Amino acid sequence: MSTIYNFNAGPAILPASVLERAQHELRDYQRCGMSILEMSHRSPEYEAINAEAAERLKRLLGVGNEYHVLFLQGGASLQFAMLPLNFLPPGASADYLITGAWAEKAYEEALRVGQAREAASTAANGYRSVPSQADIALDPHAAYVHITSNETIQGIQWHTWPDVGDRPLVADMSSDILSRPLETQRFALIYAGAQKNLGPAGVTVVVIRDSFLQSASSNLPTMLRYATHVKNRSLYNTPPVFAVYMVNLVLGWIEEQGGLAAIAERNQRKAATLYQVIDTSGGFYRGHAERDHRSLMNVTFRLPDEALEKRFVTEASARGMVGLAGHRSVGGIRASIYNAMDQEGCDALAEFMIDFMRRNG
Rank of each mutant, 00 (worst) to 15 (best):
A272P: 12
N50R: 02
L97Q: 07
F284P: 07
H41V: 06
A120W: 09
V205N: 10
H293V: 14
Q157N: 00
N197T: 04
G332L: 01
V207T: 02
L251K: 09
L111V: 02
Q343R: 04
E38A: 15
R117H: 13
Y144C: 07
V130Q: 08
G320N: 05
A110V: 00
L37Q: 10
E25D: 14
P11Q: 03
Y144R: 02
I263P: 06
R180D: 09
S211N: 15
P200D: 09
T122F: 05
G193E: 10
M1E: 13
L60T: 12
V250F: 14
M173L: 14
N219V: 00
N237I: 15
I36W: 08
A201G: 08
R117M: 12
F356D: 11
G62M: 04
Q257T: 06
A110S: 15
P240V: 02
Q23Y: 06
L296I: 03
S121F: 02
Y245E: 12
Q343W: 03
I208G: 15
G323L: 04
G202H: 04
P89E: 11
S179C: 11
R27A: 13
M34P: 02
N360F: 07
R266E: 14
A201Q: 03
M353G: 02
H327A: 14
D279C: 07
L57A: 13
R311K: 09
H146A: 14
Y96W: 02
N150A: 13
N197Y: 08
W161G: 01
S329E: 08
P140Q: 05
V322L: 10
G199E: 13
Q268S: 06
D163F: 02
N125S: 10
T184S: 04
A194P: 04
A92D: 11
P89H: 09
T222L: 10
L349P: 00
V69M: 11
A227G: 15
H146K: 04
T314E: 13
F80Y: 15
W253K: 07
L260H: 14
V207C: 02
D210A: 10
R286Q: 05
G75H: 10
Q73C: 05
T148D: 15
T238R: 14
Y5N: 07
A53W: 01
I263D: 06
A106L: 12
